[in-house]
Write a protein that binds this DNA or RNA. Structure first.
Lengths: 79, 79
DNA sequence: GCGGATTTGTACGTATGTATG
DNA sequence: GCATACATACGTACAAATCCG
């Protein structure tokens, strides 16, 4: 999946949804790290600010946990 | 040379240009190391991130080569 | 070979400025 | 005015590679 430049949905929301889909389909598994901010930047062609906004949204959704210096990890599956 | 705080040119570009000038005028010679990131930080009063951005730019210009644990070295003179 | 110091690599936190719609 | 998006610049923390006594 990629960011749709033409979509009215903000880039950071699109990115959060892409990563959420990867969690849902098992591409990203609970207790494993998601790609770093720098990696997501490169992969999706967006700025770090946009990546951080996406990850912040996912934290607020309870989908990931962020640890300074260690990265952002997929949360336990919601029961 | 020092960083000009008032210049519209980003600090990291200014620093890369300062070091490039030192290579050009022989202050820094081919096959010798440039000062460490920590040293450049102190000397020019910028953060390590800014130093690293400057060195990255110089690598992209082919002016220096970086070796983890050994430092960054002035490249062979371009013929 | 080992331990400590040095140097670069990686990762996130935060703030500010600029531009656009 | 506000939200989005990008770039710059500061900081912290820790890991990995190298060097040297």
């Amino acid at each position: 999946m990629t960011i749709d430049e033409m979509s009215p949905v903000p880039f950071y929301v699109q990115l959060a949804d892409i990563l959420a889909a990867q969690i849902a389909d098992g591409t990203l598994k609970p207790r494993t790290p998601i790609p770093s901010e720098a990696h997501l930047q490169q992969t999706y062609g967006v700025s770090r600010g946009t990546v951080r906004a996406a990850v912040k949204l996912m934290r607020e959704r309870g989908q990931v946990l962020t640890f300074p210096g260690r990265g952002t990890w997929v949360a336990e599956k919601q029961p």
